[in-house]
Design a protein around this nucleic acid. Structure first.
Lengths: 240, 240
DNA sequence: CGGTCATTTGATAGACATCAACGTAAGTGG
DNA sequence: CCACTTACGTTGATGTCTATCAAATGACCG
């Protein structure tokens, strides 16, 4: 139950414009609707380009309008950890709201468009905005906790499957097909997010494909047997 | 740099009332000062007692005034993950601000006192409160990310050392000695938080003690050689 | 003082990391 | 248009960290 509310991670965007079974314009888009009357600064970014980096002066909040992004934290000694993948409707920079500088790196994984939100003005002039921001902050915490649970208690296969389900669910929310996933990150990035090596990610995907549960063609993955994948989650619950 | 701002996890409370070198009344206590004029409902809890559990109707926010607590999420199939240890100055229930029910379990690890904060009223009547809550939410996210980094990229020894440093730092902020740590959680709980087994935690502590870096007597741990411990962190940076 | 729970330590095994090649795709420049 | 380069992905062999299993000791409590 908690899980349903929490799980999240990944995106794929412009292709696959099929109709979703559940309709469009979900929670994710509510911020966009809220901001329709505002003249927002837009910013285009290309793949591998940083939106901002930890330590830079915080100018604004960014609302993802298109494209895929990764957020990451880095330690002094260079260890990096991808904390999430962001897509349309996600807000970037929230985690530094109380700071003068950004607290994480955000990199575009493909070309995308961002809307620059002037936080202070929106907060003061748009009453629902503050509330929305609070909700987004809280849900980010729950999402993080959910991933901590996943990474801390599940084995490699189950982590990957959890990721695939989460990505599929997010895509579906945006109106895309939940069965054809276009990964925008490398195996290494996926592995980093899941606390696995890139080789392990590859092996898991191959394994799942061999069992007929998914189809893998590079970064294009299709989900063939949802129940089978659910079984993977239920079965060998490694650890603890 | 990021790390310093982020790391956090653990507490120990009433004993060790030594003077801290850095003075008192830090950021952590600012909420208490802010609330001095308010008549707050207080609640006493005993060890092993739940403050609230995930799914229960959300009544209020709780400010920890005394005692130690653990927050945990649980999946449908019973996997549990401790997401943090909370002490004086921490706010409980923040992660569910936008929900009708709590999103995690909170259990007292010893006797403690909580102050019940009526969120809606405080938000409306105390302007600085909203701001404070936002800051706390954001810093919880950064803290979570920092632990994700630690758990995802460091080996067992380094996780435990990171934990000890974090705990020591938090204790110092509260005015206690940063060198004598009274753990309030079992090895199993510590292991759960660090994504290790209780046996591994025990072994690491024994190992560090054998090297003369710390002293271990059950749940009482004293830090003997900070530099030596720093070395552990620098050295064998396992993984990736 | 028996009984439960927490901690410690040892022996063993397994899952995943590491190391090493090789295959594939895409982009560059001659 | 095709070597050449570079980045990414796949697969295999091997190693190791830490989980698992097991047992003994100690602490606390009714």
């Amino acid at each position: 139950m908690l899980l349903d509310a929490l799980q999240r991670s990944e995106p794929s965007n412009e292709p696959y414009l099929e109709a979703s079974t559940t309709g469009r314009a979900h929670e994710t888009h509510s911020l966009e609707r809220l901001l329709q009357a505002w003249p927002l600064q837009r910013r285009r970014v290309c793949a591998k380009q940083y939106v901002f980096r930890a330590g830079q002066a915080r100018h604004a909040l960014y609302l993802v309008h298109a494209g895929f992004f990764k957020t990451a934290v880095v330690s002094e000694d260079g260890r990096e950890k991808i904390t999430g993948f962001r897509m349309r409707g996600d807000l970037l920079g929230l985690d530094a709201l109380d700071m003068p500088t950004y607290a994480c790196d955000v990199m575009a994984l493909d070309t995308g468009e961002l809307w620059e939100l002037p936080y202070a003005r929106l907060r003061d002039e748009l009453p629902q905005f503050q509330e929305r921001v609070t909700a987004l902050l809280a849900s980010e915490i729950r999402r993080d906790w959910s991933w901590m649970l996943t990474l801390g208690t599940l084995g490699a296969d189950q982590r990957v499957v959890t990721f695939l389900f989460d990505l599929a669910s997010r895509l579906e929310q945006l109106g895309f097909s939940p069965n054809r996933l276009q990964l925008r990150m490398t195996r290494a990035e996926l592995g980093n997010f899941l606390s696995l090596t890139l080789e392990t990610v590859t092996r898991v995907l191959s394994r799942l494909q061999a069992r007929g549960l998914i189809g893998v063609a590079g970064r294009e993955i299709c989900i063939k047997d949802r129940n089978g994948l659910q079984t993977v989650l239920r079965d060998n619950t490694a650890y603890h």
